[in-house]
């Protein structure tokens, strides 16, 4: 059997990303040490969170409250760090918070059979309301010390942030999980066809909840990663960030209908979306152009997926040679 590199969507994306980086490094200060460092620093949490969202989208669901869940995680981590608790404890604690909140989303979605987008939209609101109402100073924590920021600000060889290494390993781990584990295959199955999944002995409800739990775990990591780059933390830091994660996943080839996509694609998607947005800043566009851009990206990415579907279907139609007439003559 031939082993040639197929021009899959992921490969094309990787090439685009490479060209993009090349272009940026030629025209801007992107290829300086600080440029590369800040690029890696910014992109790491986005990659991890985009992988988190991908897991949920694989099953045909979505989580609009991802950003605000990260806010809770960051608050938890900050609060613990303020009390002098070390990274090895506040990281798992944060992940646990992520798991609990995302798990609640998954539970309501599955148990009451309501669309996850509506559940998580409402949760988004509840979370934000909660910050402002119940957290002292709306969850703002200032002057966090070295025991908090060492992870976010630390770097290997003076250039590679710790977070980037972590993101790298998380990406590898989930590429592995999606390809080599029952759990990974079950996610694709449930997103592909619930009925066929059941015929294959997979419990769709449990699989969806597991996907949400895993999402929460990763959101926890991503939030701690991002928060520890700062000495002050507030939950509202993450409001609206889910938009980037979702468009990263969709650009990376994850189908909004579920069942299709690769983690490598998501990582490439995250890079591309990030590069697009920083180039806009380099080009002098204001920050709020991002919203319009992301909206268009989501529409375009989904539209491509949808059209691909119908094109595929057309090619299935059996061509019969005895068909004489041309199209267009009115019946």
């Amino acid at each position: 059997m031939k082993k040639s590199i197929r021009m899959t969507r992921e490969v094309v994306l990787a090439i685009i990303v490479a060209v993009f980086i090349l272009f940026l490094s030629l025209t801007t200060n992107f290829n300086t040490v600080s440029g590369i460092y800040s690029f890696m620093l910014d992109i790491s949490p986005t990659i991890v969170a985009a992988i988190a969202l991908s897991l949920v989208i694989f099953t045909g669901n979505i989580d609009i409250s991802a950003g605000t869940i990260m806010g809770f995680v960051a608050y938890t981590a900050g609060k613990l760090a303020e009390a002098g608790i070390p990274f090895v404890i506040f990281l798992p604690a944060g992940m646990l918070v992520g798991v609990a909140l995302a798990g609640l989303n998954g539970y309501i979605t599955v148990k009451f059979k309501v669309p996850s987008i509506v559940v998580t939209l409402a949760m988004n609101m509840v979370h934000i309301g909660f910050y402002a109402t119940f957290l002292p100073m709306s969850g703002w924590i200032e002057n966090l010390g070295e025991n908090f920021t060492w992870f976010g600000r630390g770097r290997f060889l003076n250039i590679i942030p710790y977070g980037f290494v972590l993101a790298f390993f998380v990406s590898l781990l989930f590429m592995f999980i999606m390809k080599y584990t029952k759990f990974g295959k079950a996610l694709y199955a449930v997103g592909g066809s619930i009925q066929s999944a059941m015929y294959s002995g997979i419990d769709p409800d449990r699989t969806v909840i597991k996907a949400f739990l895993m999402e929460g775990l990763l959101l926890g990591i991503a939030a701690v990663m991002k928060a520890t780059t700062r000495s002050d933390v507030m939950p509202s830091l993450f409001i609206g960030r889910e938009l980037f994660f979702i468009s990263a996943a969709l650009v990376g080839g994850v189908s909004i209908f579920g069942g299709v996509g690769k983690i490598f694609g998501t990582v490439m998607g995250a890079l591309l979306v990030y590069l697009l947005s920083i180039s806009m800043i380099y080009l002098g566009f204001q920050d709020y152009y991002q919203f319009a851009l992301q909206g268009i990206i989501i529409l375009a990415a989904v539209y491509i997926t949808v059209t691909d579907f119908s094109l595929l279907k057309k090619s299935y139609c059996k061509e019969t040679d005895e068909f004489p007439g041309k199209k267009g003559e009115e019946a």
Binding site: Y289, A292, G295, L299, V302, F309
Partner: peptide, 21 residues
């Protein structure tokens, strides 16, 4: 065939962005 939820999620960001621009 884009589901309404996804369509309007995207246009939500789009409209917001345009108004900010």
């Amino acid at each position: 065939k884009i589901p309404p939820l996804v369509t309007t999620l995207a246009t939500m960001y789009l409209f917001r962005g345009i108004s900010m621009i």
